[in-house]
């Protein structure tokens, strides 16, 4: 990252307080994910029926749940799992999606036909439904939530990479690289890949938010994460039964934090788009 780029990022952050806010929020979440278990005020798994269903107070900022666990601690500790699922899923779809998309766009022919058909077939399902089907078939585990989320995100990366590789395949600088004796692999990794990185990074950020939503949704309906492990989706599910009787806090805080996390990634994606878009460089 050269000085000009850094200056530009600083400029965008300064110009755009919303992106700055998202950036700060993101840092807080990353902190929770890294050191959550050490900064949580209580053990997220210890039950105490004597202090069950307490409304938010000085001792328990977010209140306690039906078996007396501290909701704030559970929300903090859950960050690592939720982010972990989302990051692994996005990383998987990033790597495989880009590889497949580049192959399709660069080699064309049968590669293209088969890979595009694969992407189309995934997209032929409502994506959350497909994710449900995959987890149900593979078995109910966190790893399978990651795989399912990765699979349903695959088409986005395939399409971006394919389109870019298609355009670049015949571009002058690729032609030049080929004439000077570079192998296909070298051309792809050194000349095509770096060029598709910026648009894909925006996709990654927007995708992260979506992956978190997706993973939380799956655990909300009882797939993947098993209680008593703290996870935002499942905590909302646990609190759902109490909300109509007025104990709002059990579902409210995990839901709110989940929403903030997704919001944060969406804002970051928008901000990233501004940073990358050269038309906005001044």
């Amino acid at each position: 990252m050269d000085a000009a780029t850094f200056k530009h990022i600083k400029y965008v952050l300064g110009e755009n307080p919303v992106t700055l806010f998202a950036f700060v929020l993101f840092t807080v979440f990353v902190l929770f994910a890294l050191v959550g278990p050490w900064i949580a005020p209580y053990d997220p798994l210890v039950t105490d029926t004597a202090r069950a269903m307490q409304a938010p107070s000085a001792a328990h900022w977010f209140g306690t749940d039906a078996v007396g666990r501290d909701i704030l601690s559970r929300v903090i500790v859950a960050t690592r799992l939720d982010f972990g699922i989302a990051i692994s899923a996005v990383a998987l779809s990033f790597v495989f999606g880009i590889a497949l998309g580049l192959a399709a766009g660069f080699f064309g022919g049968w590669w293209d036909r088969i890979i595009s058909r694969l992407a189309d077939t995934i997209m032929a399902f409502p994506l959350f439904v497909l994710a449900m089907g995959i987890v149900a078939a593979l078995g109910n585990s966190v790893a399978n939530i990651v795989y399912a989320t990765a699979i349903i995100n695959l088409p986005f990366y395939i399409r971006v990479a394919r389109a870019e590789a298609n355009i670049r395949r015949d571009a002058g600088f690729v032609e030049a690289a080929r004439l000077t004796g570079n192998s296909d692999w070298r051309i792809l990794s050194h000349h095509v890949f770096p060029n598709i990185l910026p648009p894909v990074m925006v996709q990654v950020s927007l995708n992260m938010g979506w992956a978190i939503l997706n993973a939380a949704g799956l655990s909300f309906i009882g797939l993947g994460v098993r209680p008593p492990i703290p996870e935002w989706g499942i905590m909302v599910a646990e609190g759902a039964t109490y909300i109509v009787s007025g104990a709002w806090w059990v579902a409210f805080f995990p839901g709110m934090v989940l929403m903030l996390a997704v919001f944060c990634f969406n804002l970051l994606g928008d901000g990233l788009r501004d940073m990358i878009d050269p038309r906005r460089r001044t």
């Binding site: 938010g209 909302v236 759902a240 579902a251 919001f263 804002l267």
Partner: peptide, 22 residues
């Protein structure tokens, strides 16, 4: 448009029933 895509549907549903029902 920015906030809307961040809403977990299941959470919005719960919030709405808490506010409008309870």
């Amino acid at each position: 448009t920015t906030a809307g895509v961040s809403l977990p549907t299941f959470f919005t549903g719960l919030l709405l029933s808490y506010v409008f029902y309870f």
